[in-house]
């Protein structure tokens, strides 16, 4: 896949990092401000898509990246499930029990399990969207070969 012109490349260089950080902010503050795992995950995936579209990449790199994103996606959903299962083992024996101490409402580290759920759902959504995008590009390159 070929990249775009110098103007697009330079603008992407300036913007992509900020977009990535904004996605991380949305994920981490999901229990305080509007947003959360789903929205932040898609924004993080958007920064990667921006970089791939602007700079382009050769086929082998894309395949390697797709393998990594698939692994992260499956690991994140497994960790999410195990975090929910810990409520069964420890605490009161309810699936999805929020047994960690809640802390003061309004602080960054509070609300027990909710920030952890947000983080892993964010990783899962980001890796899923990126995998779908990469699969489409890889399919096209395979057809052209």
């Amino acid at each position: 896949m070929k990249g775009m012109t110098v103007i697009v490349k330079k603008t992407t260089q300036l913007i992509a990092g900020i977009v990535f950080l904004y996605g991380i902010y949305i994920i981490l503050h999901g229990h305080l401000t509007p947003g959360g795992g789903f929205a932040g995950g898609v924004i993080v995936a958007g920064s990667f898509i921006l970089l791939i579209l602007a700079y382009g990449s050769d086929f082998l790199n894309l395949v390697k990246e797709e393998r990594g994103s698939t692994t992260y996606e499956n690991l994140a959903i497994l960790v999410f499930l195990f975090l929910a299962l810990t409520g069964m083992v420890a605490g009161v024996g309810i699936f999805f029990a929020n047994w960690l101490p809640h802390g003061t409402p309004g602080e960054l580290v509070s609300a027990g399990f909710l920030p952890l759920y947000n983080i892993f759902v964010g990783i899962e959504v980001a890796a899923s969207i990126l995998t779908i995008f990469l699969a489409l590009i890889i399919f096209k390159e395979e057809v052209l070969k």
């Binding site: 999901g30 229990h31 305080l32 401000t33 509007p34 959360g36 999410f80 499930l81 929910a84 699936f95 999805f96 929020n98 809640h102 802390g103 409402p105 309004g106 509070s110 609300a111 027990g112 399990f113 909710l114 759920y117 947000n118 759902v121």
Partner: peptide
């Protein structure tokens, strides 16, 4: 009950955890 200031996240990940899963 959840300690989350954002009510939507509290409902999504605590009361309605099965839906999110």
């Amino acid at each position: 009950k959840t300690g989350s200031v954002n009510l939507v996240t509290g409902v999504l990940f605590d009361f309605r955890g099965y839906d999110t899963l």
